[in-house]
């Protein structure tokens, strides 16, 4: 079994500390959900694991199968099997999804080896069928003029194609209506496998009605203040974040 291990991680942006001594281990085959109010540091955690340049890790570590990710460039982390579905994916004007994914797939091959175009397209179409995505979708420029739902679908398709070992989905439900939410959830569920570990970051419980997590963690002010199973999400939904926040002051919970 492989694992993504976050050990006593502290992250600062400028002078302010955003992630405070956070530890968490995700094994392949598991789905972990991190819930928390706005500003709790969830997205920072996601981006720092992926290697976003502006964030400073002040202490602690992130290991993927024992290897220190923090010493690797973002692209090296990605090629080793880490995927981040962005909350706000960037537009890449003029570059089609098909060409973008092809470049991403090519980057995973040893130098001098050329991606076999027919195999690539066969795989692309297979994944699109799996996710109920129309064939014309991949001839559009990456995220350019996409609706919120299309952007998330594009992220899920990329995840399906790149076959990561660990995927972090950052607020994949934000800005989606219920139909789009179902489509995205269907995508994630169909990619669940013993070979994939998922860290699902969300503000709302409703996504967890469609993607049933194995573990739920509540993050407040840069810390995980409570962990449990899927029932915790329901409890949180009922009682609200204030309930957790009140408890968060107690250091024993950390």
């Amino acid at each position: 079994m492989q694992q993504l291990e976050i050990n006593n991680l502290r992250v600062a942006i400028g002078e302010s500390e955003i992630v405070r001594d956070l530890s968490l281990t995700v094994r392949t085959g598991e789905v972990h959900a991190i819930m928390g109010p706005n500003g709790s540091g969830k997205s920072t955690l996601a981006k720092v694991i992926a290697g976003y340049p502006d964030y400073r890790v002040t202490s602690g570590g992130v290991l993927m199968d024992g290897e220190n990710l923090l010493e690797l460039r973002p692209d090296e982390r990605a090629r080793r099997g880490l995927f981040l579905a962005f909350q706000y994916p960037s537009e890449i004007p003029g570059v089609t999804i098909a060409n973008f994914l092809r470049a991403a797939a090519q980057s995973r091959l040893p130098e001098g080896e050329e991606l076999e175009a027919t195999d690539y397209y066969a795989k692309l179409y297979e994944k699109m069928d799996l996710l109920d995505i129309d064939r014309s979708f991949t001839s559009r420029s990456v995220n350019e003029g996409f609706s919120g739902g299309e952007k998330k679908r594009c992220e899920i398709l990329q995840m399906a194609m790149l076959e990561p070992r660990f995927a972090i989905l950052d607020e994949t439900d934000s800005g989606l209506d219920i139909d789009a939410l179902k489509v995205v959830a269907h995508g994630v569920n169909s990619l669940r496998s013993p070979n994939l570990g998922v860290l699902l970051i969300t503000h709302y419980q409703r996504l967890l009605n469609y993607i049933i997590p194995d573990f739920v963690h509540v993050m407040v002010q840069g810390r995980i203040v409570r962990s449990g199973d899927k029932e915790l999400a329901l409890e949180l939904e009922e009682k609200g974040y204030d309930w957790i926040r009140d408890h968060a002051e107690e250091p024993a919970l950390v």
Binding site: G51, R73, D75, A78, S90, E91, A103, A104, S107
Partner: peptide
């Protein structure tokens, strides 16, 4: 934009040239 492309496995240089080609 560059970080987004790097997260998909492209090196910084590859990401730049893909942006420009786009």
């Amino acid at each position: 934009q560059i970080f987004y492309m790097q997260q998909r496995g492209l090196s910084e240089g590859q990401a730049m040239s893909l942006s420009v080609n786009g």
